[in-house]
Structures are given as C-alpha cells and as structure tokens.
C-alpha cells in the first residue's frame, strides 16, 4: 500500500539516511528499530518532506506517486504524522486540536463520528476538552497528538517515538490504544526506542543502523535475532 524507494536525506555533508527502501501493507503495522542517531527521525522526515529528500527517491501510497507532494498535502492523501515532540498546538484547547485534526477535506464530513471514536479510544480526553493542551502532562499531550492524527481519517499513521519521556504505566496505556488503532485497520509505521512494545504491536520490522537498513524480518524473527536482542533488548 505504502512504499518508499531509495530515500536519502543529507544534512550538509552528512548523509543521515542512505538509500532506504521500505513498505507498509494495508492494515499492517511495521516497526523501525534503531539506536539513537541511527537515522530514525531522519527517516520519517525523509518520508514526509519532499524538499529534504535527495533526488531519485520515490514514494507511492495507495497506487499514487506522491514523491512531489507537499508536506501539508500528505494528510489529504491519508498519511498522518505524529512527530517527535508531539507537534500539538499547545496554546489551544484539546477540542481545538481535535477540530484541527479534522481540517483536511477528506475528514470534514465524518468529523463528529471520528471525534466519538477517538474519545472512545482516549476517554481521558473527553473530560478535558476545554483544557489548554500545554497545561497537560506529557502522556496526555501524546494522546492529543495521536487523537488529532486519527481525526484526519488516515490510512497510514506515522509515529515517531510515541512513548518517549512517558512513565511506564502511560506507555502501556498508549500502546493499548495503538493496538486498537491497528485492529481498526489503519496501517502504522512506528519508530520506537521501546523495541519490546513496538515489536508486540508490529507484524514486521526493519533495523536501521547509520542511516541504512541492515536487517528486516517478522517481529518473531527480530525478537529471536541475537543481534537485535543484544543491541536493543539488553540480553
């Protein structure tokens, strides 16, 4: 459904992402594993910002070539990004953030249904609709970020470190919600430092090292892989 071919990202002389290709199937969840500095965030930037990519990269989504699509038009194509650091409108309320999530034309008509769905997914947000997002805890802000992305009725959800900086109990809550999102049929590409949780969510994964894909396999294979176990699982 989603496929990226030969994506490279260069910052000055530094090649942060070197000829990476990957795909995500319909209703599939795929994890990107990698240590700090392996190029995980560069990968998501490379996938979403046409201006940042080196020439030659191709991105297709649902049969359409979207290599030249502007970042603000990706949502309209069904690709919603939850960036590192959440990217919420901190000065606005939860309600406003959700409404903005439904700003793309594809989501406007079904906005009230989507709102009921995301509030069902994150019941905490329902009691906080009038609260300014900047005054909420990190976990709650992350929920707003994911909920806002889901408001756009995405076919593919890109998640950059959704558990970063959250308390373990909140991480569990977040992943429980992501399991439900996955089961609802939304494809997910997740970049995570929490390898155990993301492999439990994902069917497959890629291993990123120094900007290149150095391994791939089903989640079961990756968990059993001694290299992965040593590098990411601590045994």
């Amino acid at each position: 459904m989603f496929e990226a071919r030969s994506i490279s990202v260069r910052y000055g002389k530094h090649l942060a992402l070197d000829d990476v290709s990957l795909e995500v199937g319909t209703s599939e969840c795929v994890a990107i594993l990698g240590a700090n500095g392996a190029g995980k965030s560069s990968l998501l930037r490379g996938l979403t910002q046409a201006g940042l990519r080196e020439r030659g990269g191709v991105i297709r989504h649902r049969g359409e070539d979207i290599s030249a699509t502007n970042d603000f038009d990706l949502v309209e194509k069904g690709i919603a990004l939850v960036p590192e650091g959440r990217g919420v409108f901190a000065e606005l309320t939860v309600d406003d953030n959700l409404s903005l999530g439904a700003h793309p034309k594809r989501a406007r008509e079904s906005a009230s249904e989507r709102r009921a769905e995301v509030l069902d997914l994150f019941p905490k947000l329902g009691q906080r609709l009038a609260q300014t997002v900047g005054t909420m805890s990190g976990g709650e802000q992350q929920m707003v970020a994911v909920a806002r992305a889901l408001m756009s009725r995405p076919t593919l959800l890109l998640l950059d470190e959704p558990s970063l900086g959250l308390a373990p109990i909140v991480v569990d809550e977040m992943f429980a919600a992501l399991h439900k999102v996955r089961d609802s049929g939304v494809s997910i590409l997740i970049v995570e430092q929490n390898v155990r949780a993301s492999l439990a969510l994902a069917a497959r994964g890629y291993v990123l090292e120094a900007g290149r894909i150095v391994g791939r396999g089903s989640s079961a294979e990756l968990v059993a892989d001694p290299m992965v176990a040593k590098a990411f699982l601590g045994h």
Partner: peptide, 10 residues
C-alpha cells in the same frame, strides 16, 4: 501560535 505544526493538519 505554532506555524511549524500547521502542515501536520494539512
């Protein structure tokens, strides 16, 4: 308030 995040919501 957050021009950098506008693209995220289209």
């Amino acid at each position: 308030t957050r021009p950098a995040f506008a693209a995220l919501v289209g």
